[in-house]
Amino acid sequence: MTDHAVDSSRLYDEFVKGIWKENPVFVQVLGMCPMLAVTNSAVNALAMGLATAFVLIGSSVLVSLFRRLIPRQVRISTYIIIIATFVTVADFTLEAVVPTVHRELGAFISLIVVNCLILGRQEAFASRNPIHVALADAVGMAIGFAFALFCLGATREILGSGSLFGVSLFGENFEPWVIMVLPPGGFLMLGFILLFFNWVQQRRTLRPSRVSPATREAA
């Protein structure tokens, strides 16, 4: 099979794997810094997801495009320059378009540079695959990452503030679980989501035998 004969099913596989089977957060447990730091509301989580998607897709396309031109010895430095450029552009754009969200996310926008998910995709995938495959992979991974961020952000906002996207869900008398919008709430909720994800995965693979959910608490 050559570059030109890549069938659409391969593209589809590369796209879909990032969303579920190799989800960057639930399965690979990558990019924990933004995952824990900025998911105290659904809006923040989504904004971070979009910014990361922009950086990931942009740099994957460029890296894949120039993969034959970049010497192996300086590839990491080159990838970082490319990634940092996209991050800074995203930083400026967010500050101009949505200043309130930008203020909430603060330094974590700049820290996308060191999100190991992004560099990891360049090194492991984009630098070795043709552009359309790399694009499919990056879009899938970006959606998977944004989806995970959104899951965490939405649950934390619902429990911690009683609202979703700032819209109050339970009325005036809701007692917010303050811990959920604080950093420990991020760790707790991430633990629960990973637990749930592993439980679902285990049920799927071991369907015939009886599986006890509590044995997977280690997540």
């Binding site: 993969r67 590839r75 070795r128 695959n129 043709p130």
Partner: peptide
Amino acid sequence: MTDVELTVSV
């Protein structure tokens, strides 16, 4: 899969 290019230094 032959379209995975490995960057092997020669």
